[in-house]
Nucleic acid binder design. Sequence first.
DNA 1: AATTTAACTTTGTATTTCAAAGTACTTTTA
DNA 2: TAAAAGTACTTTGAAATACAAAGTTAAATT
Lengths: 101, 101
Amino acid sequence: MKTSIHGLHKVFESRIRLGIMSALMVNQKLDFNEFKHLLELTDGNLASHLTALEKHRFIQVKKQFVGKKPNTSYSATDLGRQKFTQHLNTLEALIKKVSQK
Amino acid sequence: MKTSIHGLHKVFESRIRLGIMSALMVNQKLDFNEFKHLLELTDGNLASHLTALEKHRFIQVKKQFVGKKPNTSYSATDLGRQKFTQHLNTLEALIKKVSQK
DNA sequence: AATTTAACTTTGTATTTCAAAGTACTTTTA
DNA sequence: TAAAAGTACTTTGAAATACAAAGTTAAATT
């Protein structure tokens, strides 16, 4: 087991950040409001989870105006994809181990 | 995504409790010291994670003497197996979703 | 001018996590 | 037989995390 949970990254353990990263793996970009509706969080809480991922450089932010509205969109960085993939691989291996028997 | 992370259980989010449950899915019982070596935790920390799982009735405890030494062993309950399986199924679905494309 | 929208930041509380130290009881060792 | 060690905790306290609610900034709409 020592080896099995070694590839897990603390920042991905939260269901919310897990959700954010998953969403960004299948969508090249998503904006603040999309996340808000997807995850049903308060603005502040969502912002802090996004900031946590940004601090690790697992996601990157782009601020612009879309039409006349401000828009903040997020995408996974290469590093983020790499680390998150490793996290999922570890989980997958763990699931496989548990399922086999 | 709303649906995807719905089957996750908070208590299984921690890598340590994930490790404990995984170990108990493939071993019908493990004792305190085995966990200690498997997970490399201080006694107190291990005890509190085990207690957390016990409070949810996801694991059960058996205290006995083995030879002359006290021995505390743990096993997953049916409820624990059921809930943990659901957690892993949810993760598996999420991984599949992310991997597809 | 007042309201709304977007995206935060700040504040404050509650919860979680963990190491370290302390405890109780038994056994082994010097 | 007194001291040390092992098992399995509990308690304490500090640090990190999580979250809601309220406040903020700046532009856009009514």
